[in-house]
């Protein structure tokens, strides 16, 4: 048995998502191993982002179960939680395919907003904060320290007081990851983190993700088209096509899987029947 089946952080069980008559994801099951970098790949329109939206609560799945196993032993059924609780309680953070930063706020403010929930508690739900009671100042200073840590790791510390909309595309991508990490997640879901990055920035991203995995108790689930990222850093790859899982295993296994090759590269005309039979179409 593989590591991800023995010690999963997230179990996706029979996940189905239908939009009217269209089945975007059909009976999908896979596990995300604790401490792994798991990649979810597939051609355009395969249903990857739909899976993400189900995991992070932006869609309610039509069928199926999503079980988050926290490191403390708690279990959360994500399909039953409202979206903000998935981040607050189940500790699943995400980034977006089209970057969603708070553009008119500074980089530091973006990271402070990410620490909203602990800071709200520290400010006694605002009442203590307004009156200047409780250890709010100290907690806020701690939050700033945490933000500084992530800014240094992403190389944005010099621009901490600039508006987030001022950053270049690659920096915005990194800031979004830093912001998600400031929520203290156990599972970080990245929707195409390398999209639009140049090879150098892609490399920096790999380093950042490896650091996150090495130094934090955070597992990573990512959607990616850039195979250099996928094959380089991931421990486990799940391949989707038309909402159905066609392959699941280590990068080496997936790379040589005929189903995957057929889905990505197509096959010769005279082999179509053979392959379709094999794939089960």
């Amino acid at each position: 048995m593989s590591h991800w089946d023995n010690n999963p952080v997230l179990k996706v069980e029979h996940l189905t998502m239908r939009f009217g008559g269209l089945t975007a994801v059909g009976d999908l099951s896979f596990n995300v191993g604790r401490g792994d970098i798991t990649a979810l790949i597939g051609p355009n329109g395969a249903g990857k982002t739909t899976v993400f939206n189900c995991i992070t609560g932006f869609y309610k799945p039509t069928e199926g179960r999503l079980v988050m196993h926290r490191s403390g032993g708690e279990k959360h059924l994500l399909e039953r939680l409202p979206d903000f609780k998935i981040s607050a309680n189940a500790k699943v953070a995400r980034t977006f395919q089209n970057i969603r930063l708070f553009g008119g706020m500074t980089i530091l403010e973006n990271l402070m907003v990410a620490q909203h929930n602990p800071l709200m508690v520290a400010s006694n739900w605002t009442i203590g904060g307004v009156l200047g009671l409780g250890g709010f100042k100290r907690k806020e200073a701690e939050a700033v320290e945490r933000a500084k840590y992530w800014l240094e790791l992403t190389g944005l510390i010099d621009r901490a007081d600039k508006a987030a909309a001022d950053l270049s595309y690659g920096d915005q991508r990194r800031l979004e990851i830093a912001r998600a990490m400031c929520t203290g997640p156990e599972l970080l879901c990245l929707d195409e983190p390398a999209a639009g990055l140049n090879p150098k920035e892609s490399l920096e991203l790999n380093t950042l993700l490896s650091t996150i995995r090495r130094e934090h108790d955070t597992s990573i689930l990512l959607i990616e088209h850039d195979m250099s990222v996928v094959m380089e850093i991931s421990d486990h790859v799940v391949v989707l096509d038309y909402g159905v899982k066609i392959s699941d295993g280590t990068p080496d296994f997936v790379k040589n899987d005929p189903h995957v090759i057929a889905a990505y590269l197509g096959v010769d005309d005279d082999e179509v029947d053979d392959v379709e039979e094999e794939v089960g179409l």
Partner: peptide, 25 residues
């Protein structure tokens, strides 16, 4: 300058991002 005020402004900037960060909008 308190978390609630920053959450208001964040809400003005992007509501979906707020929810993804665990803010009860």
């Amino acid at each position: 300058r308190l978390p609630i005020g920053r959450a208001w402004e964040a809400l003005r900037e992007d509501e979906i991002a707020c929810r993804s960060l665990g803010i009860n909008t």
